Amino acid sequence: MNERDFADLAAGHALNALSEADERAYQEALAGNPHWSSHVRDATDAVAAISATIEPVEPPASIRASLLARITDLPQEGTAGPESNSADAGDYAAAGPAPVVSEPSAPTLTTSGWGMRRWFTLAASIVAVLVLGFGAVTVSQQLTRPASVVALEQITTAPDAQSATATMPGGAVATAHWSASTGQSVLVTEGMPTLPDDQTYELWFVRDDTPIAAGIFSTDAEGKATAVLQGEFHSGDVIAVTVEPAGGSPDGTPSSAPVVAVATA
């Protein structure tokens, strides 16, 4: 068994979709090649990510039946053709070699035992996604969402979620969202001035009068941004924003007064 074949089995194992024979082959291959365990982790993490992003919904029985019917219709390796009649065979032998007639060849699906297993693993994966809630598009959207949006959702759904808003003199609005239980904080802005290419906005935790750098961010054409503060939020922190050279403060300390400061206590 090569590593690609093992990766296929690992996917089936994570989905509880292996036959007894394939499960034994999977376990034996893993025992003999412990360095392949990364495929096991990847498959397990993928299944967990899918199951965590959508609500379970029972699919119609017709979907499962349709998928299984499609698998059944696939050509099987070693399928015997029509049995030949021995008497007919004798007649052909007596008649001599038959003329060879060329006919257009139909597309064929060449599969080994492992190839068929890949088809089964793919079908099992589709069934798993359907059972989890018809969520192919939803899963894709969930897994590709910006980290800032995911963090904001985690904060706002936490039991101790809090927020506060500050308005700048020019009318720009900045709202800080935080949760002590998750240790996360996010700043959402609207109407922030657009900066030249050689400048950027930088986030800070101000803790006991000490500024702690928490990442840089930029806004869109309308001054909007959703920015995660890097580092763990502590209750009572002031969330501040300064304008710094492109790339952030060169010495790790603010080079100008904050343009936004939101108290969290």
Rank of each mutant, 00 (worst) to 15 (best):
M1V: 12
E3P: 06
A7L: 06
A7E: 12
D8T: 04
A14Y: 11
L15R: 05
S19W: 14
S19F: 14
Y26I: 04
L30C: 11
L30N: 09
L30T: 11
A31L: 10
P34K: 00
P34D: 02
H35L: 14
W36L: 05
W36E: 01
S37P: 06
H39F: 06
H39D: 06
A46M: 05
A48G: 01
A48V: 03
A49E: 15
S51G: 05
A52R: 13
T53L: 01
I54D: 11
E58H: 12
P59R: 06
P59C: 00
P60A: 03
S62N: 12
A65C: 15
S66R: 09
L68V: 13
A69E: 10
A69R: 08
I71K: 01
I71W: 01
P75L: 05
A80L: 11
A80S: 08
G81W: 13
N85C: 03
A87M: 06
D88F: 10
A89M: 06
Y92T: 03
A93E: 08
A93F: 08
A94H: 05
G96Y: 05
G96N: 08
P97D: 02
P97C: 00
A98D: 10
P99F: 03
V101L: 07
S102Q: 13
S102I: 10
P104M: 05
S105E: 12
A106G: 07
T108V: 15
T108W: 09
T110E: 07
T111W: 11
T111D: 15
S112Y: 04
M116A: 12
W119A: 11
W119P: 07
L122P: 00
L122R: 02
A124P: 03
S125R: 04
L130G: 09
L130H: 07
L132M: 13
Q141G: 09
V149E: 08
V149T: 08
V150K: 14
V150E: 11
A151T: 01
Q154F: 01
T157Q: 02
T157N: 02
T157P: 03
P159A: 00
S163Y: 00
G171C: 01
A174V: 11
W178L: 15
S179A: 02
T182E: 12
Q184V: 05
S185F: 13
G191P: 14
M192E: 04
P196N: 02
P196R: 06
D198K: 02
T200N: 14
E202Y: 13
W204P: 08
R207H: 04
T210C: 04
P211G: 15
S218V: 02
T219N: 07
A225N: 05
A227M: 10
A227P: 12
E232S: 00
F233L: 03
D237L: 01
A240W: 11
E244L: 12
P250R: 00
G252L: 04
T253M: 08
T264C: 05
T264A: 03
A265Q: 11
